[in-house]
Amino acid sequence: MTKIHFERLCKSFEGGLQVLNGVQLGIEKGESHIILGQSGCGKSVLLKCLLGIQKITSGDIIVDGISVQDERRFGEYLRKFSILFQGNALFDSMTILENVIFGANQVRRDKFECRKLAEEKLFAVGLEKRVFDLYPAEISGGMQKRAALARAIAVEPEILLFDEPTSGLDPITGGVICNLLKNTIKSLGVTALTITHDLKVAEFLADRVSVLNQGTVVWTGRTKDMETCGNGYVIRFHQASSLSGTVA
């Protein structure tokens, strides 16, 4: 069953810059899908369109039969998602625990229940009690990533979005976070869409990958078929990634 459907999605900005140019893609329910692409090819823009943060120019995005452009059902639409931002986007005027409680507030009304849910999620991502009352600026990048993940899963979403989950982290921490993401996706049974330029992350997390180039999806398939897919750009991307061999 298709959970997320991109139908000839186009997005251009004022000044004529056409970033997305007919993205056609279906993401199955329960799969972990990766979108691979070079820096600046419009991956973050794609996510922002999916979340309705940026208005799409033409085409459509359908999630469980609801269009992103259907304003009457937008609340219901947005309720399905949760995102881990590229820069974490933790609220820096709140402590780590308050950040997660803010997310938990979306699904629980009772104050005590919210706090319990938030603490549960913080423990689940491997944070210790001593960081709960610290502010985001006071903890390391890896811990911030974990805290942001805790906030993302505290809203009990059906679809988890990850924007460059390992960017800015050292290879070891990046690996740990990847593991955490994989376990989270599996234990929650959610549909996951991850955006990255890093093939290692893709190989580790993906059921299927899509490669984005010049505003369209040029290939979709399993990571191990990338080398033999016959598409020049995909093969080049694969070879270049194997050469550099970095994780973060």
Binding site: K48, I53, R79, F85, G87, A89, L90, Q106
Partner: peptide, 15 residues
């Protein structure tokens, strides 16, 4: 700075 660090987008996605 909340806008720059995507915190405003985060608010939106948390409805």
């Amino acid at each position: 700075s909340m806008r720059v660090s995507e915190q405003i987008d985060a608010l939106r996605t948390l409805r």
